[in-house]
Structure formats: structure tokens, C-alpha cells
């Protein structure tokens, strides 16, 4: 069903949801925004912010540092309790919601399930806010998504001026909307206009047709040598990325605890082995890995591109490296090279 949430009612409704859920919403954090627990401060909300939150919401399910277990000197180990309290994410964009579904294929796969991830996912409802004014760095439609993509959402929300239009997509979503007024037919029509316009306004950033073939064929291309030159090898693009999920496990002996921390293929220590040997010895291999993983290996594994086009890596790379430009170039590389 479709419902209406007037702008003025947002604080009231968030308050209501807070009674049964821990509510996370994009809020002011330093000079930007992040998903933070909503504490009744409506003035902190950043629903109009021109871009996605800077810190990626994947952290709500895969915290940057997370305790896996604690142990005692006499060999006892215990795992922390799973986080199953009901949670609600309000106002997350479609690219980020879709990213969660991609990450489900990693943390909630057939033969392996991560209990921490799963517990958080199952206890969380997601209200996606579609983007009616996508940014210059966004390219969701290029990578199988869209500003109003519904994958992973319980409710999809559209800004129709005075109010938001909410379409409940799952029972979880319906349940949340039960106290809201229904949307009128006129309002429903407005929604499809907004959604269609936003989707068709998005330019194609690069061609994905044949991209994987070009990437695979050019694994050894000197192109990667070009790409790595300005790259600093920092963790910005991967840590801010909503689909990057690599982690490292560390025992913190002083705390008697084991932690899982985000890690990134852009760091040289990421692939360095105990012997000191590093199979990805230079930035050339590392920059290649980031693009290959998202645009080739994900496709091999789940048949989908592992990037949702959120544009964070483009926007915050300190040297202005743009994944779209890199892929445009890569797509043009000759495919026969490797077969010659």
C-alpha cells in the first residue's frame, strides 16, 4: 500500500517508531552527515543533503571494528551477544540499500553465514529515500541500479514536495506504516513522474557491455601502471564504499579480545604474507584489484557488478581518481591482446 508522511510530521513519526525500534537516520556529523541513532533532534536530520552520507551505512551491519570474542587466560572464550533488537534505518538512498543486498551474498551466503551480520540484518527495517536530484558523481543506473531501486527496501520513499510518499514493499514495511494516512491517486501519479524523470535524467557513465571481457583480457596491461601513478594507496575509496567488505582479524592481547576490523586491498599490508612475500607488491596490482573485484570477480561469483554507483570514491579520493573514467578507459582496451 501507499502512504503519506507530511514533512512536518517527520519528528512525530520518528518519535513513534523510536518506541519500538532503534532509529538510525542521516544526521549532521561534523561538517557532513552520517547515519546516527536518532535522538529526537529533528534539526540534525540531513534528508536534503546534496549527497549520500559520507560514512557508509554498511557500518551499521559491519562495524568498522567489532568484537568477535573475548577470552581468559585459562582458555575460556565467549562470544558477545548478537544484536537482535529491532532497528530501523530511515532515509537511506537506493544505492546504499542495494549495497546491503550485495553484501548479503557475502555474509549470508548458502554455505557460510556470519551470525553478527545476519542478526543485525534480520532485526532491521529499511526505509529507502529515492533521489529525485542525483548528484554529478552518481551513476547507479549504469550499474544495474537506479535512484528509486527497490532492492533491499521495506519501504520506498519519494519526495513529492510538501510530503513524502511511502510505498510499503514488505510486511515489515506495511507494519511500520499502519498509522499513516493512505496516499491519493493524484499523489501516486506524482510519484511515478518524479521517479521516471530522475531515472531517465541519469546519464550513462560508461559502457558495461563487454567491460568484464576487456578487464579480464587486460589483466597484464600497462594500463594499470598508468592508473596507479597518482593513486596514494590510502583507504578512502574502499572504507567509504558501501560494498567493500574486506576485514582483518586481530587479537588484542591487552584486552583479551578478538576483533574484526575493516581492511582494504589498497594497503600493502593487506596482502603481505607472514613470510614477507607480497603477491600484490605494488600499487599497480592493488589498484587493479579494486576495479577487477568490483567489475569482474563479483560478476564471476554472483553475476552482478559489485559497485552500486554511489559515487563516494569519486567524490572523496584525495587525488581525484574517478572510477568512471578508469572504467571508460579500461573498456576501450583491446581485447585480443591477451590471445595474441
Amino acid at each position: 500500500m501507499n502512504y503519506i508522511l507530511s514533512r512536518n510530521d517527520i519528528p512525530k513519526v520518528l518519535e513513534m517508531w523510536s518506541k519500538t525500534h532503534q532509529v538510525f537516520a542521516p544526521q549532521k556529523y561534523s561538517n557532513f552527515s552520517a547515519f546516527l541513532p536518532y535522538e529526537g533532534k529533528a534539526e540534525q536530520l540531513c534528508l536534503e543533503y546534496p549527497h549520500n552520507t559520507r560514512y557508509p551505512p554498511k557500518a551499521l551491519f559491519l562495524p568498522q571494528s567489532e568484537e568477535l570474542l573475548s577470552y581468559t587466560k585459562d582458555g575460556q572464550a565467549s562470544e558477545p551477544a548478537l544484536d537482535a533488537k529491532p532497528k530501523l534505518i530511515f532515509g537511506i538512498h537506493a544505492c546504499d540499500t542495494r549495497a546491503m543486498t550485495l553484501l548479503d551474498t557475502v555474509f549470508d551466503a548458502k554455505d557460510y553465514q556470519d551470525p553478527f551480520w545476519k542478526a543485525r540484518r534480520e532485526s532491521t527495517a529499511i526505509i529507502t529515500l529515492g533521489c529525485d536530484e542525483p548528484c554529478s558523481t552518481c551513476f547507479c543506473t549504469t550499474v544495474e541500479g537506479g535512484p528509486f531501486n527497490r532492492q533491499g527496501a521495506d519501504i520506498i520513499m519519494t519526495d513529492i514536495g510538501e510530503s513524502f510518499h511511502l510505498e510499503a514493499l514488505t510486511p515489515k514495511g506495511e507494519n511500520l506504516c499502519k498509522d499513516l494516512p493512505y496516499a491519493s491517486a493524484a499523489e501516486d501519479r506524482k510519484v511515478s513522474n518524479v521517479q521516471e524523470k530522475a531515472t531517465s535524467d541519469m546519464p550513462k557513465a560508461f559502457d558495461t557491455e563487454g567491460l568484464k571481457t576487456a578487464l579480464d583480457a587486460n589483466f597484464d596491461s600497462s594500463y594499470w601502471e598508468e592508473v596507479q601513478r597518482s593513486c596514494l594507496g590510502c583507504g578512502v575509496c574502499t572504507f567509504l564504499c558501501p560494498t567493500c567488505f574486506c576485514f582483518d582479524i586481530a587479537d588484542e592481547a591487552a584486552r583479551s579480545k578478538r576483533y574484526r576490523n575493516w581492511d582494504t586491498c589498497m594497503f600493502s599490508v593487506y596482502s603481505r604474507e607472514a613470510s614477507g612475500h607480497n603477491p600484490r607488491p605494488s600499487r599497480k596490482e592493488r589498484t587493479r584489484q579494486r576495479l577487477m573485484h568490483k567489475y569482474s570477480y563479483w560478476v564471476d561469483q554472483i553475476g552482478k557488478i559489485g559497485c552500486t554507483g554511489c559515487g563516494r570514491c569519486v567524490r572523496y579520493c584525495p587525488v581525484g581518481l574517478d572510477i568512471r573514467a578508469m572504467l571508460r578507459e579500461a573498456g576501450k582496451l583491446p581485447v585480443e591482446v591477451i590471445h595474441a
Binding site: T137, R229, S230, R315, C317, V319, L321, D322, R324
Partner: peptide, 12 residues
């Protein structure tokens, strides 16, 4: 020249 706004790229 930049691809991303406001970020010219170091070039070699």
C-alpha cells in the same frame, strides 16, 4: 584536468 569536481589530479 579533473574528472571529479574540485579535484585536479596529480599527473606524470
Amino acid at each position: 584536468k579533473e574528472n571529479a569536481p574540485l579535484h585536479p589530479q596529480p599527473a606524470f
